[in-house]
Design a protein around this nucleic acid. Structure first.
Lengths: 216, 216
DNA sequence: TCGTCAATTTACCAAGTGGTAAAAATTCAG
DNA sequence: CTGAATTTTTACCACTTGGTAAATTGACGA
């Protein structure tokens, strides 16, 4: 039986998910890990199945036994990423203290850049090259959430709880400044004094920056 | 005579530069234009010589008559980019009004994102993927300039002309926020209301953001 | 107008790449 | 222990891609 005929194909987030054997679970995880490494470092076209297979400790045909192809691996990574990525924004609580909610969001984003730089770069690579495989996701996943949260921000501003600025550009600047530390890490490392952790400084600096902006 | 033996190879920025024939001038320019298009959209490995040749209106062998190879074209683009890119920061004038100098720098950067999005993305692609062909340039070109300008910023802060913040992170946040509009253009376009120009809003928003931060 | 050098085309490769078929090895329920 | 199903390997292949050799055409000054 060839893999193009097996019904195993569709994995995670399906209804039946527990059906994966121990060995399948292990190898799929390994592959996703390896693929994240390679894709985030070289982009989609820059990455090769051989690199991914090697990093996962499998042969290329074996790798293709688990996934339907290069594209399928990439798409699955992006799907998984989307959730992780939207999470911090979703947690913006309408009932919390406005300023502290936004500041909390910022700190969470800094932390994500520090803990998941590969994910950040995977995302950046995809967007930078026109989001050929992610545009639909942006429309259906990100857009509604951003619309919802910008409305919330605008409300807070109308109530005088936050200084009035364009909420969309506020979000853009939060994303830009926080993700910059992961996406442009090489540059940061060249420019930053080697005796200090850029993320420490980033957290403090961004706190000042956005607090000054948003304090009514 | 094959092109691997012709002495024509080494182009621009050499001592003898006027020696290029009209036809050479024209084709080299076309190639650089085409290469900028393709490299900025797909990254180094994602770009193909065929794409570049087609975009330049030349055959692939003909293209390789003008440049020594894919890498050579990319390197030349990066070299040319470096100057353009450092320019705005260099113009930060020690004798000008501190706050207005920094704000001017920010506006120049926004304008560059708007006018040269391809250059911004070319740079972002290179850095994102570990700057394999640009690390030396960062060390030798960007680093000294940044050291010089951060010293200037620190001096202004010590004199009470600017609010005291970490000057390095200040630069990072300026780069991040301004280049974001070019590098993440696809995302911005998905999220922004179609009836307004993101760059207009960006310019106004970033003015507020950094003015609030830096006003003593 | 002719000869020479510059520019371009045609016809190729060798290596790398995504992917497949089928045999071999391994796992595991009964 | 055994046979069926799963997993892995071996041996490929078609296509793309960066690059080259050599012949052909075009430009242009003497």
């Amino acid at each position: 039986m060839t893999q193009s005929e097996t019904p195993i194909a569709a994995p995670a987030e399906q209804s039946g998910e527990k059906k994966l054997s121990r060995i399948q679970q292990r190898n799929r995880t390994r592959i996703m890990e390896a693929a994240l490494d390679v894709f985030s470092a070289h982009g989609f076209r820059g990455a090769t199945l051989d690199q991914i297979a090697k990093a996962a400790g499998l042969s290329k045909p074996n790798l293709l036994y688990y996934f339907d192809g290069k594209e399928a691996i990439h798409v699955m990574l992006l799907n998984r990423l989307m959730e992780t990525w939207l999470n911090p924004l979703q947690e913006l609580d309408p009932n919390g203290d406005p300023l502290e909610e936004v500041m909390g969001y910022i700190h969470r984003k800094v932390q994500m850049s520090r803990e998941f730089p590969r994910e950040s770069r995977l995302f950046a690579n995809e967007i930078l090259q026109g989001a050929p495989r992610m545009k639909p996701h942006l429309e259906s996943g990100l857009k509604p959430l951003v619309d919802e949260k910008t409305a919330l921000l605008r409300q807070w501003m109308d109530e005088g709880k936050l200084a009035a600025v364009d909420p969309r550009h506020l979000l853009y600047s939060i994303w830009a400044t926080t993700q910059h530390y992961a996406d442009f890490e090489v540059q940061i490392d060249v420019l930053s004094p080697s005796d200090e952790d850029p993320f420490e400084g980033a957290d403090a600096y961004l706190d000042t920056l956005f607090r000054k902006l948003l304090t009514p």
